[in-house]
Design a protein around this nucleic acid. Structure first.
Length: 420
RNA sequence: GGAGGGGUGACCGAGUGGACGAUGGUGACGGUCUUGAAAACCGUUUUAGCUUUUUGCUAACGCGGGUUCGAAUCCCGCCCCCUCCGCCA
């Protein structure tokens, strides 16, 4: 959520920022109008309440309670209730509009309208030269008997698959490797959160109310399946004031992620690139506003480190204003090269959400004991997304005979050096 | 799922219709005293909104409704925690 005060006092800044994102500007005008109405009604209600409090005090001091005064106050009470219900309605509308406005892009984010305007920041490693035509992972996985697409569909339908034997071990080993590196070398604290959370958690992270159609939901209990560990991690400190000297806080969590992928219907239907359920190791930071930009750089480096340890070529892309996610003020994607399906795979997306989620989830900190609580900055990034790393390993490490070499760093976890 | 008990400020805990945003204690911070520390004593210690120069006003006692001129306090619904029983991994 962006600060209503900013919209109220510097609407031009907000208009310009939203224009950069390619957002419609009409809703900002609506916000301003609702805000004015809201405050005016609030003033009316509050002055009536002040009157009632005052008179009630007087009545409490009187021995004889005058009937006409009580009648008058009864009317005032009715009037207050009337205005309050109006206030509530307007406040709810205002809240909803505000919750649907995306974050403001940082000033140094390249301007653009879609992914074609994104900017490559750096790259590492060179795409391998093959002496044969490298196969896509769906062929490799099926031939090796480590990915079972047919049975995935039998169990759960399209966009589901089963990992089997070495495929399953490979994923499990990758998860352990990533967690170990982030905990032991990068200083993150490992978290195991719930995979189903309450509605307000999704509002806090920015997924609701706007993106309900990408979420799985148990209507009976009002549980929501997490589309990413970012959701529970954001809400770990919801409604808290973080003590002085505690920031930055670094968390890493491995969870399953559940997404309906309605927006992407018909896209990436082949292979394991985009499923309704996938595993991900997520990095998350709570930081002071002054350091969040620097923390984002560190977060990206921490995610990149996994790519390097797996020795897979990658590039880092900065997203332009038009391609950034809803909550982000600045985003870097990491993409691994997949020689079989001949594309760059997004294995990580690292964002600084500034105070956008903190305001929604009411997450604050005290810079020192005496100071007032301020909103923290939150940052998130994959470290990394499992299915796509699996793809990259299968396709980059494939041999002419269809076997897969195991990256050096994974051998201690798998206890084999080849899948065949 | 059933029965009983409970939810008040950073924490403990008082308060059963009127000056209670809330007694008291603990902790924290500042001061007096002290060479320094402890002890003792004095003081300060919630958040948000509105208004803003100050003063000020409003709201919040798990959450949401209701009764009342007036609710932490009475009534209704819900949530959470604890104990016992049942069930389960």
């Amino acid at each position: 959520m962006i600060d209503i005060k900013l919209i109220r006092e510097n609407p031009d800044i907000v208009f310009q920022a939203m224009a950069k994102r390619g957002e419609s500007l009409a809703s900002i005008d609506e916000v301003i109008e609702l805000d004015n109405m809201h405050r005016q009604l609030l003033r009316e209600a509050e002055s009536l309440r002040a009157k009632r409090n005052d008179v009630s005090k007087q009545i409490s001091k009187m021995k004889e309670k005058p009937a006409d005064l009580i009648t008058e106050m009864r009317c005032v009470g009715d009037k207050i209730r009337e205005i309050e219900s109006e206030v509530d309605q307007i406040a709810a509308k205002l809240e909803d509009k505000l919750l649907r406005l995306p974050n403001l892009p940082a000033p140094d984010v390249p301007q653009g309208k879609d992914s074609s305007d994104n900017v490559e920041v750096r790259s590492w490693g060179k795409p391998l030269e093959f002496s044969f035509t490298p196969l896509p992972h769906w062929d490799l996985g099926e031939k090796l008997g480590i990915i079972d697409f047919k049975r995935g569909v039998k169990l759960s339908g399209t966009r589901f698959y089963v990992l089997r034997g070495m495929g399953s071990l490979l994923q499990r080993s990758l998860i352990s490797l990533m967690l170990d590196i982030h905990v032991k070398e990068h200083g993150y604290t490992e978290i195991y959160p719930p995979f189903m959370v309450k509605r307000e958690c999704l509002v806090g992270s920015g997924n609701l109310p706007k993106f309900a159609d990408n979420l799985y939901h148990d209507a009976e209990e009002d549980y929501w399946f997490v589309p990413t560990a970012e959701v529970p991690l954001t809400n770990l400190h919801r409604d808290e004031i973080i003590a002085p000297g505690t920031l930055p806080i670094n968390y890493v969590a491995h969870t399953a992620c559940f997404r309906r992928e309605k927006m992407a219907a018909g896209k990436d239907t082949r292979g394991i690139k985009r499923g309704h359920q996938f595993d991900k190791v997520e990095l998350y930071k709570f930081a002071e506003p002054e350091t969040s930009d620097n923390e984002l750089s560190k977060l990206v480096k921490d995610a990149e480190d996994i790519c390097r340890k797996l020795n897979i070529p990658y590039r880092v892309i900065q997203l332009c204003t038009g391609d950034m996610g809803f909550a982000a003020t600045k985003t870097f994607d990491i993409e691994m090269w997949a020689p079989g399906c001949q594309e760059w795979l997004e294995v990580s997306s690292c964002s600084n959400c500034s105070d956008f989620q903190a305001r929604r989830a009411n997450i604050r900190y005290r810079p020192d004991v005496e100071s007032k609580p301020l909103l923290v900055h939150t940052l998130n990034g994959s470290g990394l997304a499992l299915p796509r790393v699996l793809i990259a390993i299968l396709e980059n490490y494939q041999q002419q005979d269809g076997s897969i070499r195991i990256p050096e760093a994974l051998i201690p976890y798998m206890n084999v050096d080849l899948i065949k």
